[in-house]
Simulated scan of single mutants.
Amino acid sequence: MVRKPGSGNSSAGLNPEHMYLAVIDMGTNTFNLLISELNDKGALIHLFSDKISVKLGKDTIHRNYLSADAIRRALDALSIFFEKIRNYQPIKTAVYATEAIRAAVNRDQLLHPAQEKFGIDIQVINGDYEAELICMGVRQAVEFSDQPAVIMDIGGGSNELIIANRSSIFWKHSYPLGVARLAEQIKPSEPITHAQILELEHILENGLTDFFEAVARYKPTVMVGSSGAFDSFADMIYHVDPVFTHPYTVKSNILGYDQFINLYGLLIGSTYAERLKMKGLIEMRADLIVLAAIIVRYLLERCKIVSLIQSEYALKEGAAEALAEQILSGKKI
Rank of each mutant, 00 (worst) to 15 (best):
residue 323 L to V: 12
residue 214 A to R: 04
residue 139 R to A: 02
residue 60 T to W: 00
residue 8 G to M: 07
residue 103 A to M: 09
residue 184 E to T: 02
residue 218 Y to G: 04
residue 122 I to G: 03
residue 27 G to I: 03
residue 276 L to G: 15
residue 158 S to W: 10
residue 175 Y to Q: 08
residue 167 S to F: 13
residue 29 N to M: 09
residue 46 H to S: 14
residue 72 R to A: 13
residue 81 F to H: 00
residue 107 R to D: 06
residue 330 G to S: 11
residue 318 G to W: 12
residue 81 F to Q: 00
residue 115 Q to N: 14
residue 308 L to K: 05
residue 112 H to Y: 12
residue 245 T to L: 11
residue 261 I to H: 09
residue 215 V to K: 04
residue 101 I to F: 10
residue 194 H to N: 10
residue 287 D to T: 04
residue 324 A to M: 10
residue 160 E to W: 09
residue 265 G to R: 11
residue 168 S to M: 13
residue 53 S to P: 07
residue 327 I to Y: 14
residue 124 V to I: 15
residue 4 K to C: 07
residue 150 V to H: 04
residue 171 W to D: 07
residue 224 V to H: 10
residue 300 L to P: 07
residue 110 L to G: 00
residue 64 N to K: 01
residue 78 L to T: 00
residue 203 I to C: 02
residue 211 F to H: 05
residue 304 K to W: 10
residue 46 H to K: 07
residue 326 Q to G: 04
residue 100 A to M: 02
residue 144 F to N: 06
residue 76 D to A: 12
residue 23 V to M: 12
residue 61 I to E: 00
residue 154 I to M: 13
residue 245 T to A: 13
residue 179 V to C: 13
residue 59 D to G: 02
residue 152 M to R: 03
residue 311 S to Y: 04
residue 253 N to M: 05
residue 26 M to R: 01
residue 269 G to L: 09
residue 313 Y to T: 06
residue 6 G to W: 08
residue 54 V to H: 02
residue 154 I to N: 01
residue 90 P to R: 07
residue 166 R to M: 11
residue 52 I to L: 14
residue 140 Q to P: 00
residue 312 E to L: 08
residue 97 A to N: 07
residue 100 A to F: 00
residue 278 M to A: 08
residue 254 I to R: 15
residue 193 T to Y: 05
residue 96 Y to M: 03
residue 28 T to D: 06
residue 120 I to F: 12
residue 142 V to H: 01
residue 321 E to S: 13
residue 185 Q to C: 03
residue 226 S to Y: 07
residue 9 N to K: 09
residue 26 M to T: 01
residue 10 S to W: 08
residue 136 M to V: 03
residue 37 E to P: 03
residue 51 K to G: 05
residue 210 D to A: 05
residue 64 N to D: 14
residue 214 A to P: 08
residue 17 E to N: 14
residue 116 E to F: 11
residue 227 S to Y: 05
residue 192 I to P: 01
residue 317 E to R: 08
residue 328 L to S: 07
residue 188 P to E: 04
residue 221 T to D: 13
residue 167 S to C: 10
residue 170 F to M: 14
residue 77 A to V: 03
residue 157 G to F: 04
residue 18 H to S: 13
residue 65 Y to E: 05
residue 190 E to W: 06
residue 274 E to N: 07
residue 13 G to R: 07
residue 331 K to T: 05
residue 313 Y to Q: 10
residue 158 S to D: 08
residue 46 H to A: 13
residue 264 Y to M: 06
residue 90 P to M: 09
residue 33 L to A: 01
residue 121 D to F: 12
residue 253 N to C: 10
residue 249 T to W: 09
residue 230 F to G: 00
residue 308 L to T: 07
residue 111 L to R: 03
residue 175 Y to S: 02
residue 293 A to I: 05
residue 321 E to L: 15
residue 141 A to I: 02
residue 290 V to D: 01
residue 206 N to Y: 12
residue 118 F to K: 06
residue 29 N to W: 06
residue 142 V to I: 04
residue 201 E to S: 04
residue 61 I to N: 00
residue 139 R to C: 02
residue 221 T to K: 15
residue 119 G to N: 13
residue 127 G to R: 12
residue 62 H to C: 03
residue 151 I to D: 11
residue 241 D to V: 03
residue 144 F to C: 06
residue 163 I to A: 10
residue 277 K to E: 15
residue 93 T to D: 01
residue 152 M to P: 03
residue 134 I to A: 11
residue 25 D to G: 02
residue 205 E to Q: 12
residue 5 P to Q: 04
